[in-house]
Write a protein that binds this DNA or RNA. Structure first.
Lengths: 215, 215
DNA sequence: GAGTGTGAATGTATTCACAGCA
DNA sequence: TGCTGTGAATACATTCACACTC
């Protein structure tokens, strides 16, 4: 239905729109301008973002909150539950386990992998931990499509390689180093020190940057 | 010296280049192609990224690792230590405290803020915790330029507002909701569930996206 | 009249390709 | 000859502005 192709930024904004819509009552109506205001964007951008995935509004009346919520959820793939493989079950790994363990979460950490023999074979926060060599077998059998890497930097590339071999489709990399994956695997780096460095770079070189509108 | 302006993406890649260079010996030389290969990019992109900040190489010989490391560090503002204010000292906050507490970290969490009276007045992991109403005074006095928000979603906007009033220049927002800040404040959202949603969106709608080269 | 959906215009980022230096 | 630094070309993303529908 939609002619143009979406940018990754559009996806991340959809995710933000959705968070905001979740706090509104289902029957309410909302216009693109109203929605934009709460996110510091423009109505045009909201409409464009939505247009990549379909036509959800009614001219002169705006969008029905309930319907819009449903459609954005579908566009983001949140109309199902996604099992996840966690590679590296240290402190950060445990925080993630807790963070995703809430009732309505669409993400569910299904298995963990760690080289530490004190962890393998056990359950941590209810999740079974295996040695990484079992990754391909387990990930395939359990039809897992997403992996999260929370290992130390030294083990990150190796972990990514194993995930790729296992047929994973997307990787969230929390480690402090970049990893390389084939282009058919969607990779997102979420190490926060990199983000801090972007901020300091920006503070130090203000005038050397394009204006940059957000995120 | 450089004519063109940098993109934020350039900054994030510089940060990655630097991580890689840190593992090499200082006296070594490296070409843009070699550096690119380890990060899954092209030599042209590496050279362009560097060119925003100066001219660091020698034709036909490449870059000296030591010099390049130094120059990128300077470009990213990592030639100094940055004090940081942490708003919300829960589980995630403590993980960040630990994560940044290593010897050579250029980021140092200097104060924490939390509304919980069991925390205010105490020290947690060596860091003094105050009530948020004291933010403007303390942040100004201690000349802090960066804030990290790790509060629950409900308190995120309020925290951001206080940080802005306190004269902060950059904010790293870990909360699960977007916040709005004036354009002179550099904001980065690092909530990982948003990133997961980008991945699922991508998996579900592959063909609806531009090719997307990385990150 | 009010607000959506979308082509066309602009602005930004990446890639190409080559001149010029060691 | 090999590799940097960079303008010119392309590809992508955002904004504008308006035709169209309720």
């Amino acid at each position: 239905m939609p002619k143009e192709k979406a940018s990754e930024n559009a996806a991340i904004r959809l995710s933000l729109y959705l968070r905001y819509l979740r706090e509104m009552r289902e029957e309410t109506r909302i216009s693109s301008e109203q929605l934009a205001e709460f996110l510091g964007t423009s109505g045009a951008r909201v409409r464009k973002d939505l247009s990549y995935f379909g036509q959800f509004g009614t001219p002169s009346k705006g969008y029905r909150v309930g319907k819009l919520r449903e459609e954005i959820s579908k566009a983001l793939g949140l109309d199902r539950v996604w099992p996840i493989a966690l590679v590296g079950v240290g402190k950060l790994g445990r925080v993630l386990l807790n963070n995703l363990a809430f009732e309505k979460s669409r993400f569910h950490i299904q298995v963990g992998f760690d080289v530490n023999p004190n962890k393998t074979g056990r359950r941590i926060a209810g999740v079974k931990i295996y040695h990484p060599y079992q990754m391909p077998k387990i990930i395939r059998k359990q039809k897992i499509h997403i992996g999260m890497i929370t290992t130390p930097a030294e083990a990150a590339q190796e972990s990514a390689d194993l995930l790729v071999i296992s047929g994973i489709k997307g990787i969230l990399n929390f480690s402090s180093t970049g990893v390389v994956v084939p282009s058919y695997v969607k990779l997102k780096n979420v190490d926060f020190t990199s983000q801090l460095e972007v901020i300091t770079c920006y503070i130090v070189n203000n005038q050397r940057f394009h204006l940059s509108r957000g995120n």
